[in-house]
Design a protein around this nucleic acid. Structure first.
Lengths: 186, 186
DNA sequence: GCCGAACTGAAACGTTATACCATTACGGCG
DNA sequence: CGCCGTAATGGTATAACGTTTCAGTTCGGC
């Protein structure tokens, strides 16, 4: 079984984050040039803001951030930019938290799975081929044609667990308790 | 490896649906009695409405439906009832479509995975232990404590594929393509 | 320079969810 | 019974999220 690869660095992990941003922007520019897409100033700025860190960013926070930069853009403009970036595969949308994160593996096909920490909000994108492939198998078994999938895991990241923050102030996205998923009668 | 089990019957499948509803309500009543929870009239009606069929139901549709039954309930009342039903495990929330469906396996532990048809909107809940367990393994490998997960598959169900409806009028919840977007040759 | 397509700006609207506060039902207890 | 604490509900307003619409602008190609 192929182990999952980390796509992008976790929040707080030691890394030069300007590198992440620069690389993401450069890759986006390259891809757009190659595919005849237009990375306009607004789209570029939105992408840059989303890459600010590895926290998911909400649409209206983007609007505010753009205003702070002197751009008075309304919701439609930002959502259009987001749509473009989604279509192009530069970012992902996280439905469980209504927010967006940069894609850590543009270009490479990958089986996205997201670990979302309820305590600090950080998101870790994994390329986890094994579970995703199994999901495809199950869908196929039901005669279901898979178009896209959302696999979002909510819990507590290792850093927050270590820091004892796992007490989870009902912060981001409290959901129903998960029924034990016991790895049991198989 | 255990194959996925269907939880609840797919929309349109031949079955006496009153049986589904009756069974779900009876089970909810039983569980509430046993756990000292209160299945109040509003909660009961919301649960009943959600079980109306195997389509996901939206919160504001519930409000309208309740009004049609003579109850003038505001959004908070309905959301409170939904929260209760979620907590109790009687229903699931589908984040990709902002809607709710009845849980086909209350009481039994199960590893929920949802197949959502973009053409007809029907939802099939599978108990798919294998992929879900693998997801847990990957999370664990990252030191991540899993609290709950959302696994929602968007695509086309077998019935719609057979009926040639797979052309997907961008109806429910269009998302980004899984693979990098095709270069538009023009 | 002209044209069409793509992009942007702005206002209004539609949808989803919560804050706030008042009120009512329920259960224990003196 | 009357009191009280907790849970549940009602109702308005508003926050948060997202789309429609349409007019104007920019860009690339001829």
């Amino acid at each position: 079984m192929s182990a999952a690869r980390i796509l992008g660095a976790p929040a707080g992990a030691r890394h030069d984050h300007r590198h992440c941003v620069g690389q993401a922007l450069a890759e986006a520019e390259r891809a757009c040039r190659q595919q005849g897409l237009r990375l306009t100033p607004i789209r570029r700025q939105v992408l840059e803001l989303i890459w600010q860190d590895h926290q998911p960013v909400k649409a209206y926070d983007l609007i505010d951030a753009l205003r702070d930069r002197g751009l008075r853009t309304g919701p439609p403009t930002v959502y259009r930019a987001l749509d473009f970036l989604l279509q192009a595969g530069f970012i992902h949308r996280l439905d469980t938290v209504n927010a967006f994160v940069g894609c850590g593996a543009h270009g490479r096909p990958h089986a996205g799975m997201f670990l979302i920490c309820r305590a600090c909000g950080a998101v870790l994108e994994l390329d986890a081929p094994s579970p995703i492939r199994l999901i495809g198998v199950e869908a196929d078994r039901m005669g279901f044609e898979l178009v896209t999938q959302a696999v979002e895991i909510l819990g507590h990241c290792s850093r927050c667990r270590a820091a004892g923050k796992a007490v989870d102030a009902r912060g981001p996205a409290a959901r129903e308790p998960t029924r034990p998923v016991d790895p049991e009668p198989a």
